[in-house]
């Protein structure tokens, strides 16, 4: 990460998403978050649950209201959707991390398979 990026990150970490000092620059103000009837903490749970199961009508209502008001929560939801997409892709894709059976493991497996195949012939 560049120095500029690091400075940006340090700066943003000082302000909460609902800072009273900068209600629009960094996200909705504290007032907005209070009016939404749902905290970001609770929203994060619903956003996760929504990926796997339907929300109840009340959950859906509070989720929609908070989402409209909170930029950080919208961003969080996009990111966990991306994470979920990455996970689902593993149904068919190969690992990027290079791991292989060791030669010793291959040899053990080969012997076990040949033993099994021989016992079928017997």
């Amino acid at each position: 990460m560049t120095e500029q990026g690091q400075k940006q990150r340090q700066t943003s970490s000082k302000d909460s998403c609902c800072s009273e000092k900068a209600p629009d620059k960094n996200g909705p103000g504290l007032l907005h978050c209070c009016l939404s009837t749902l905290s970001c903490r609770e929203y994060s749970k619903l956003a996760s649950k929504k990926l796997d199961a339907p929300l109840s009508p009340w959950e859906q209502f509070t989720y929609v209201v908070h989402r409209a008001l909170c930029m950080v929560c919208r961003r969080y939801e996009r990111q966990i959707q991306a994470i979920n997409g990455a996970a689902k892709s593993y149904a068919t894709r190969e690992l990027e991390t290079h791991v292989e059976l060791s030669p010793a493991a291959k040899e053990r497996l080969k012997e076990a398979i040949l033993r099994e195949a021989s016992s079928k012939e017997a």
Binding site: K14, L30, S39, A86, S89
Partner: peptide, 27 residues
């Protein structure tokens, strides 16, 4: 785990940085 991310008001401790790519491009 939750306290690491949220303050006592239930609000994010900080603004989460954006990811530069679209989600479907990340794969």
């Amino acid at each position: 785990t939750l306290d690491r991310h949220f303050n006592r008001f239930g609000v994010w401790n900080r603004v989460l940085p954006n990811w530069a790519s679209e989600p479907n491009e990340l794969l």
